[in-house]
Design a protein around this nucleic acid. Structure first.
Lengths: 348, 348
DNA sequence: AACAGAATTGTGAGCGTTAACAATCAGAGG
DNA sequence: CCTCTGATTGTTAACGCTCACAATTCTGTT
């Protein structure tokens, strides 16, 4: 069809203009939906555009408008269910608003990696960044980095003056703990996430607050690293307490800070011959798709990750387009999902 | 420090040139590592760059070089463990090669959505696209779309003339099936993924081939949609067969096409009072992090998602930079992970 | 029919960079 | 001391688009 030219450049606006018999500026107007163009002209231009398969050159556009319409995302641990789901919601929202999303995944997320990720994105001219960096140290590093564009955190806490979106982790933890107490347990044990994580802290805080409000001295906190293995280890320890019996605090209910660790806890209890929820009730956090099929189906807290993604983009775009002023922090409501693992009547 | 100007533009190359007392072209040379610059000059320029906090404008650069150094990724179902892990590997690799990665997530991924995703990326000038679109219909649509840049598929099969990277799904399925037969089972049942997925097809094909080579007539295939729920349903059906007993083919071993469905199968069997692996052995595919903690720990096939991501970027960049000619298709080796769910001695 | 005013279209400049080429400078050789 | 070569630096012109403004064409009045 085309001539056998070697280096066929894509058509430019001038080509379209020639084809349509108008000036390049008119083509530009048509393409950006300017109202003052005669219908017939618009029609001609549109036809020429289609015929040539023309596409505006975004680099040229960005050069003159100083708007790249590109957003950056920095995320740690994107293979996990939570961050991955947030990313999806975020990308959809960005695309709806006409932005392109460029993602940088960090594996461990040292402060160093963070800086270079920001640099990487900055050098491509992103107009803003969403940082899914749930560790306290990251948020700290971010705040100190002082990027040349707005940065919105996800699960970044609200201590620092960065705008952000979070699930109300503390509320979620309260809901679980209250649920367990209401089921008649005299206390609730807790397997927490790693220390540096804001989510761990908030979940632990919610759990502790409920116990203290009920006049119960919180038992010692066990700590994991979010992995099933670490949950398994914690579960073994709990099983020991549960069976020892003479120990001070009875183990009849456990709030585990995420579902993956809860899976490990469940296995450890099972292996120790302890029935769930008959002898020990277990609850998790996140509501990963597998949770409903755990042995037994897991009571947990559902996070609306998609909403978190959407709202973070909303917030970021507000900042970019100058609609938002301060370091606002949005909270998304969690939802308690009750399943067999905490059912009082259950005996499995 | 700075004047109270309203619209402070970022410094340009000319600013740096002035500051360093050289021409903008020299600055350009320093920044792009051109050899013919005197060390002293280079030094001055570097200092000026740092002092002004200068950054090259990527839009201007892209405009003149016609290289955006941006890659696009189109992915369906990015919240799942597999695609999410692939994405991570892919992003790391791209960044190492100096490319920016822009991702578009499709929820369901109709052919229509695919086209608009490609358009979205194209209008931002990506130089190539990796498509993680494991459904046959998507790949078909992609091949017909005839994008203005190279497209590499992940798990896209090799029928069409698109270059791609896949796990050797068929080999993985063979390994599992052979493992089960070797354990003494007279046949192996199969819970497959949805019809349109190439991964389903390949896994089913591998399973079928092994049975037929062993002179065994493959039992009827049950089909799920990758979700734990669908696995649960299939598991109920299998439990029925297993207990009915008089039915033709005994149910003592099941190869489930992914780990999530296997979780559902395990629950259904457990609820029916069938012991795993004692009465029925179960194997999955993917090796999600939870698999090791399933009741019982699941025998499965590990995919090196990170490698898949890395190699797909390698292939794409080869095409972009003109090093690759044909529609090469790379296969990544799977690895059989044997756990309790298929242990012959086991009786739990 | 003539004119104001709006609607529509065209013209030229400039966005910040790299590529191509021209100019200058340093050191080697005669 | 001068010429010549290669290393180093500078100059100018794109790249493809939008913005600001100028020019033109329509309207509807008087």
């Amino acid at each position: 069809m085309a001539h056998p030219a070697e280096d066929v450049r894509p058509p430019t606006m001038a080509d379209v203009a020639r084809e349509a018999g108008v000036s390049h500026q008119t083509v530009s107007r048509v393409l950006s939906g300017h109202p003052n163009v005669r219908a017939a002209t618009r029609e001609q231009v549109t036809r020429a555009v289609e015929q040539l398969g023309y596409r505006r050159n975004s680099a040229a556009r960005a050069l003159v408008t100083r708007r790249t319409r590109t957003l950056g995302v920095i995320a740690v641990n994107t293979a996990l269910y939570g961050p991955a789901s947030t990313l999806t919601g975020l990308q959809e929202a960005a695309r709806e608003q006409g932005y392109l999303v460029s993602t940088v995944s960090l594996r461990t997320g040292e402060g160093q990696g963070l800086k270079s990720a920001i640099d990487h994105l900055a050098s491509w001219g992103v107009e803003g960044v969403v940082a899914i960096t749930p560790q306290r140290s990251h948020v700290q590093a971010l705040a100190e980095l002082d990027a040349p564009f707005p940065v919105v955190t996800v699960e970044g806490g609200h201590q620092l003056d960065l705008p952000g979106v979070s699930l109300d982790q503390e509320l979620g933890a309260r809901m679980v703990t209250e649920h367990l107490l209401a089921a008649g347990h005299s206390t609730v044990w807790h397997v927490a996430g790693p220390d540096d994580w804001l989510e761990s802290e908030a979940r632990t805080a919610g759990w502790r607050a409920v116990l203290e409000e009920s006049g119960i001295t919180p038992p010692r906190v066990l700590t994991g690293d979010w992995s099933p293995l670490s949950g398994y280890r914690a579960g073994q320890e709990l099983a020991g307490f549960a069976l020892a019996r003479r120990g001070a605090t009875p183990v009849t209910a456990v709030f585990v800070a995420n579902d993956q660790m809860a899976l490990g806890v469940l296995r450890a209890l099972r292996e120790a011959g302890i029935r769930t929820p008959g002898q020990v009730a277990v609850a998790g956090f996140d509501d990963i798709p597998e949770a409903e099929y755990f042995p037994p189906p897991l009571t947990t807290v559902r996070q609306d990750f998609a909403a978190i993604g959407r709202r973070s983009i909303g917030l970021l775009v507000d900042h970019i387009e100058g609609r938002a002023r301060k370091a606002e922090h949005l909270l998304v409501e969690p939802q308690l999902i009750m399943r067999a693992s905490t059912r009082p009547s259950g005996d499995d």
